[in-house]
Amino acid sequence: MVEEGLRNELSRQNIFLTSIQELYNWGRRNSLWPLNFGLACCAIEMIAASMARFDIARFGAEVFRPSPRQADLMIVAGTVTKKMAPMVVRLYNQMPEPKYVIAMGACAISGGPFKRGYNVLKGIDRYIPVDVYIPGCPPRPEALLHGLITLQRKIAGERLTGPERPRHLRELEPSEYPIPAYGPYDLDPPKNTELWHPKPFVRDA
């Protein structure tokens, strides 16, 4: 590996050095193609982020794809109802690897204001792995852009080999997750216990 300082010095002399890993991550992080779907009001902010004023194209993520086969970023924008949850998981399963998920807004993170509702999923991370959470109700377009940049930083830091390599490069990690079935009272199962491990919640006295 070339040192950061030496590489900067060389680039000033018009000599560009890189590694496969950096080039690979650089290419991927600057052309994230989001899946074109929205669930609730957060989707309106997502649409606003893609328009001229906020212009998500500045970060290379303007190519909203209408098919999961062509997308590598899922922005879960809005309330996931239990009726909709199996479809969201199925769309995730149909995306090719490497794929990333942004949970946008309070509802996609935890159910948000509908947390005590009977037909709202209490966070999409119960069924699919989430890379970046964007709080807000709804988050402003700037927040979505910040979330996108955060995801780009995360991708830039991914290592192609070694034990710290990301999920899609581990053979044993699943690429698809079980789609919940409609049960008589709740989704079946209500959460993917292999995937979802909430941190113990202890508040100081």
Binding site: S110, Y118, P190, K191, F201
Partner: peptide, 8 residues
């Protein structure tokens, strides 16, 4: 309602 969340 189903017992489907842990805490708020």
């Amino acid at each position: 309602e189903p017992d489907d969340y842990e805490y708020e």
